[in-house]
Design a protein around this nucleic acid. Sequence first.
DNA 1: CTGAAACGGAGTCAGCTTCTCCGGTTGATA
DNA 2: TATCAACCGGAGAAGCTGACTCCGTTTCAG
Lengths: 233, 233
Amino acid sequence: MLRIDLRLRYPRDMPSTEPPPTRPLRRDAERNLQRIHAAARELFAERGFAVTLDDIAARAEVGVGTVYRRYPDKHALIDLLFEERMAQIVALFDAGLADPDPWRGLVSALEESLAPMVQDRGLWELMMSGDHGGDGVERGRVQLAPRMEQLVRRAQAAGAVRVDLEPSDLPLTLLALGALINATRDVAPDVWRRHLQLGLDGLRPDRRKPTPLPHEALTIDELGRAMRGSHHA
Amino acid sequence: MLRIDLRLRYPRDMPSTEPPPTRPLRRDAERNLQRIHAAARELFAERGFAVTLDDIAARAEVGVGTVYRRYPDKHALIDLLFEERMAQIVALFDAGLADPDPWRGLVSALEESLAPMVQDRGLWELMMSGDHGGDGVERGRVQLAPRMEQLVRRAQAAGAVRVDLEPSDLPLTLLALGALINATRDVAPDVWRRHLQLGLDGLRPDRRKPTPLPHEALTIDELGRAMRGSHHA
DNA sequence: CTGAAACGGAGTCAGCTTCTCCGGTTGATA
DNA sequence: TATCAACCGGAGAAGCTGACTCCGTTTCAG
């Protein structure tokens, strides 16, 4: 399925080697494009990447043809919409790195990069299963790794994190917490914070007493509903 | 899709109110039934419950009709094959409860109930997403909950586990680790033990130093492969 | 007003799984 | 070793779902 990268954005002011800036879209075309973007954002957030381009067209109140005219496939659309999201997350890690307190920086980066996944199933799938998105998203993913590593190393140097923790352990921890988020998002959208704290308490070199846990635990009933949901992707 | 529970096992010696013990299957029928079971077990383990009854028939070297004659749908087959597996896991928790050392009992129950999921994708799906299997499996799931609770309470009473941990936290932790297992099974089938330990260190009330981590961390390359795999269900 | 640009959405295609049907084969029984 | 009920096999019918196209119609720009 040949993929062509045709993002129809406004010409950016950069030294383009490209053909002359295609003249702006007709007004109706521009309006529809925005509608498609909005619809796609909503649907990806609600239902993940399993949605159909047909679904998106319906939500945008636009014909399928119109969507296919702009985007040869879902990948292009995903890549366009999520490149920015990825950049935001990278920025979060930079902010963590900038925090004078290495531990606090680590914790806040984790917290704030996990939080948006509760609202956005698409973002979750993007982070968890690697085979979505295109170059733009991939670029973000690549930038993330060294930042995580640095965050860990700096915290270790400060004595805030156990020394036997390796950088690759962090992404795996995030993956595990991501699964937890996915299972509980509809039942108790904040329990993941409790489990993040539990996990963090395992990362410290030593500890006198348990760090207080945020958020109540799931009730038995909530737990049942969380486990019964069908957690795909 | 009406589900009929027709397990064609040998008549059990129990005070049956049922019609007279259906006479044994013809020899070829019996042979095929065994083949189907074996094939199903293999395929569920390798590829999860997404496999088709047609796939199973092919692996069993039997016609599709033969499979459908025995099992109206996949559920019946899954339930039959996994009822026993569930019982084993319940037994594992009982064993943990029988351990004089509450902490060791807890740890070993977790370890040993997680371990088989590395080999058996089906078992993993069964534990993680609730909507597979039938009554037999469900019965197992129901028995599990109180045992987990007791395991936690007992360890807390002994001062081995932080007191703010609630029983519902345990299944969620298992769920998270399950996701980790699923992502890493093909790349490094044992890293999950490392992360279990990390998690366990978070459950203790206090701790002088980190418990040594079993197994090496993932290399960057392994991590990449783990995250790139498509982790379904 | 006119034609190029863009739209819409019914309809075609392709892939997949489920499940049936019945001519042919096999095993139990005498 | 003959008989027939039980059982097998697997082509293919039927149903679904999602991807994508095509062309008559509408809309905008100048």
